[in-house]
């Protein structure tokens, strides 16, 4: 089993946040010539994309173009789908091919957390939702759990709203709070990368604004890949934007360039709202 190298500045090794973990020349995630299909139906073709550490990368494109599929490749959630497989190419994180036989998918998913489109708090108390991932790892110490619960909820900008009702069911929270709870739950296991699949698509504008604000705070410590169909959202909160169309990566560039000066006419048409 190959262990992914421990990143510098990981909270687990208690280094100060904000230290660049990897030399800037090398992206944290390197997707190379990736082909992916569901059974015989190809979903991604020839994707080559680098994801920078501690940046927000937005994946945009019309629905069905493969954004979610690519996102699920990064923490191998596609393993759960029958017949889904990578047919060519590779994905490397810290230079390690994550589809290599000896990569432990459990360790990978601890490092690469995921927030889903439909918020899925567990029907447990707020505290137990956050503690879930830690208990999986065998952490039982009550004081330590409480400490991480608080830190994670603060990290997800939810602490002030729920600190008096940690024992209550998470299902009593509003939609936006539930989604922030899911983010808190994800950061409780100290991931390095957070994948978000349209995290705001079911939320009202106020809740959406809160999540976007949160993403701005999180980027100091985590590398974030966010799928969104909301162009303003991509423009507002991402550093890099990748535009996909029909399973292909059309353009990947700094967000400002994508929105003001796209190199590809398809990108231009999409971001200006002429199709999709």
């Amino acid at each position: 089993m190959v262990n992914l190298p421990v990143r510098l500045g990981s909270p687990a090794v208690a280094a100060p946040a904000g230290v660049p973990p990897v030399a800037p020349s090398r992206p944290l995630v390197e997707i190379e010539d990736l082909d992916f299909s569901y059974g015989v139906t190809p979903a991604l073709k020839d994707i080559t994309l680098g994801i920078e550490p501690r940046k927000v990368t937005a994946l945009i494109g019309p629905s069905g173009c493969g954004k979610s599929t690519l996102l699920r490749c990064l923490n191998r959630m596609n393993d759960l789908i029958e017949g889904a497989r990578i047919t060519a190419g590779s994905i490397r994180i810290h230079g390690v091919d994550i589809n290599q036989r000896d990569v432990d998918v459990i360790e990978l998913r601890k490092r690469v957390g995921m927030v889903f489109q439909k918020s899925n708090p567990f029907p447990k108390s707020i505290r137990e939702n956050i503690a879930y991932g830690l208990r999986l790892q065998g952490l039982r110490d009550r004081a330590r759990l409480d400490e991480i619960v608080e830190r994670s909820l603060r990290g997800a900008a939810l602490w002030e709203e729920v600190k008096d009702r940690l024992g209550e069911s998470a299902l009593g929270l509003s939609g936006g709070q539930q989604q922030r709870l899911c983010i808190a739950r994800t950061i409780a296991v100290e991931p390095e990368i957070i994948l978000m699949d349209e995290p705001c698509s079911a939320l009202d504008p106020v809740a959406t604004a809160k999540i976007e604000e949160l993403i701005q705070e999180l980027r100091a410590r985590y590398s974030i890949v966010i799928v969104t169909h909301n162009m303003q959202q991509a423009a507002r909160c991402s550093d890099q934007t990748a535009f996909f169309y029909l399973g292909r990566l059309v353009e990947h560039a700094p967000t400002r360039d994508i929105f003001t000066n796209p190199a590809n006419p398809q990108t231009e048409a999409y971001v200006s709202g002429r199709f999709g």
Partner: peptide, 14 residues
Amino acid sequence: PIGFRVGSLALGAT
């Protein structure tokens, strides 16, 4: 709900 399962697996559960 399937969300209970994927949510758990995504946190590194077996």
